[in-house]
Design a protein around this nucleic acid. Structure first.
Lengths: 325, 325
DNA sequence: AGACTTTCTGGGAACGTTCACACAATAAGC
DNA sequence: GCTTATTGTGTGAACGTTCCCAGAAAGTCT
């Protein structure tokens, strides 16, 4: 490249990186040489020298089924991508769905392939989460893993949101209200139960809370069956996700209950499920795209040294009130 | 590292890459030195020297909405990841959702960040597809872009599958059968129409085929309205995707038609939608995970020089016959 | 006019590997 | 006991950048 432009490597490098102290003519001749030869800087060499890769890893640690079902993940991905792309960083998605993957990803991170990391849906005892924190790589979590402290994270106030929607459900006159909870190994899952409990106060009945590991349709089916079994007179349900709510609604319908007349039901996420339920589902709108954008921004800020690596950022949720309750 | 083990760089390199001509004791002392120092080979340096990155790019070129909705994409992603992970390659997902992304991704590819590329859902005039072919990077397409030849691709036989399911729909006694088509800028979309036409033979009526750009629920809603408008006596529908079928079914229900009594409907994909429709949807099972795995394998084969870069691989589809027709 | 500052350019060194080669030691073949 | 393989080890060069320093040229201040 230096040869093609007739100038030295140093000057070429300055032009490419837009540094000061380059004359207009030098810049021009380098530019035209670049265009002519179709020159592209070699990333490996640059990374080697600068110890930067200009790539950010997004670690998705989910079992197969959920990865395909959870609409939040896709939205977070796109949000993250938009911010990083604007800052000329490349998003590298790292999927972890086995122990083997877990090791390989850790290795990958140690290898300096990425400058920063975004971790979504970390749960208790997450080895990668711990590894990242231990390595001191700039990182942001989407959702706060219960057992790791001193990290940067973004999320929503699950307690407040769950309490709010449960309260509104109660205001529709429900007396026997249950909850199908999920993912109690994460803050999101636990906090939704806490909010539910807070809203019910003295009326809270632990027997009317069932829980399942996954935020899935099938969990909703199972959970609703259990609840109907325990309390045939149930007239309100808070489902910890829209997918769960969809499963629960199908069971209620099959059991001859009319929604919302006999049983009112509310969900969480405001995903594609919510609008397509019959009737449309009342739910909490979770700003998944914004969470992704914010997480990306926090990692970029750490890279620029503009921000410390700890503390949470909370985004607002809104209740979408529809016909299901 | 060489210092820590007391041996030369060359020997250390041989141990790490598992080459021949290393004595047992040398191997041992290098290994224990690695463990002690927590040594990790520097990827950038290795890439620089070997001109290999051990990463494969997966280019997803979809508008926002579809990326979130299309279950095939997630399944392809996971399938690809499993094969590459087993071969110690890292999957790097590159999301293209703007012109800007398109340029950046092309740059990224040129920069030698990946050794090979998998492109899903390429359409006509796809700039990245063309760029990849022009650069001669080992690549495999999932689905065959209509206007690029001489490439490796994997897919299903859309013509045959569409013909088969339409024929079975006809065997349920339907007389006036329409189709909601989609994505006519891709082979998949065109071929499904061709199969539909072939199954109908003389009974084919162009007025009963409507088409929309996206394989989405909304396309199904729109399309079904149009079809009902044009032919109130319609009694069979072939939807080009399950999401379209779901939209169409909701419209049919709202219009007072019973499924499958008044109208029979079939879809395509066998995605999560199919089982949760009311009634469950008859559809074509598309082996999305296998497509991902196969595409990954074909890229790896090209990297090993075991395979030429052209030709298609077709995977079998199966009809899942349920209650909707 | 001399001393200092600013702008610009070139070239050596380094980043951490792998590769090709040279060479030593041992084993095998006649 | 000579040549010829086989196995093992060390070393210089190279990959393509960026960074640092030296120094030239031009401008600015006493």
């Amino acid at each position: 490249m230096a040869a093609a432009s007739g100038l030295s490597r140093g000057t070429v490098s300055r032009v490419i990186n837009g540094e000061r102290y380059v004359s207009a003519e030098a810049r021009d001749s380098v530019m035209s040489a670049i265009a002519e030869v179709g020159y592209v800087p070699n990333t490996a060499a640059r990374n080697l020298k600068t110890k930067r890769s200009h790539a950010i890893g997004l670690i998705v640690h989910e079992p197969h089924s959920l990865f395909l079902e959870d609409p939040n993940i896709g939205a977070i991905l796109l949000g993250t991508n938009s911010v990083l792309s604007a800052a000329d960083y490349q998003l590298v998605s790292l999927i972890v769905d086995s122990e083997r993957d877990s090791d390989r990803v850790a290795e990958y991170l140690r290898g300096g392939f990425v400058d920063g990391v975004i971790i979504i849906s970390a749960r208790e005892n997450d080895p990668i989460g711990r590894a990242v924190v231990a390595m001191g790589i700039p990182a942001a979590f989407v959702g706060h893993p219960p057992d790791i402290d001193g990290i940067a994270y973004v999320g929503i106030d699950n307690v407040q949101a769950a309490e709010a929607i449960t309260t509104r459900l109660l205001h529709t006159g429900r007396r026997r209200v249950g909850m199908i909870a999920s993912a109690l190994d994460r803050d999101s899952g636990r906090d939704r139960v806490a909010g539910f409990r807070a809203a019910l106060g003295d009326a809270f009945d632990p027997a009317l809370v069932v829980d399942y590991p996954l935020y899935s349709y099938d969990s909703g089916v199972e959970g609703m069956r259990r609840l109907l079994d325990r309390a045939p007179d149930i007239d309100g349900v808070f489902a910890a996700s829209d997918a769960i709510a969809a499963g629960a609604m199908d069971v209620l319908r099959a059991a001859g209950r009319s929604i919302p007349k006999d049983v009112g039901i509310v969900g969480f996420d405001d995903s594609a499920w919510a609008l397509r339920c019959q009737p449309p589902l009342s739910t909490v709108r979770q700003p998944a795209g914004d969470l992704g954008r914010m997480a990306a921004q926090r990692v970029l800020d750490q890279l620029d040294g503009r921000e410390s690596a700890t503390g949470g950022t909370f985004l607002e949720t809104v209740i979408a009130w529809r016909e299901s309750a």
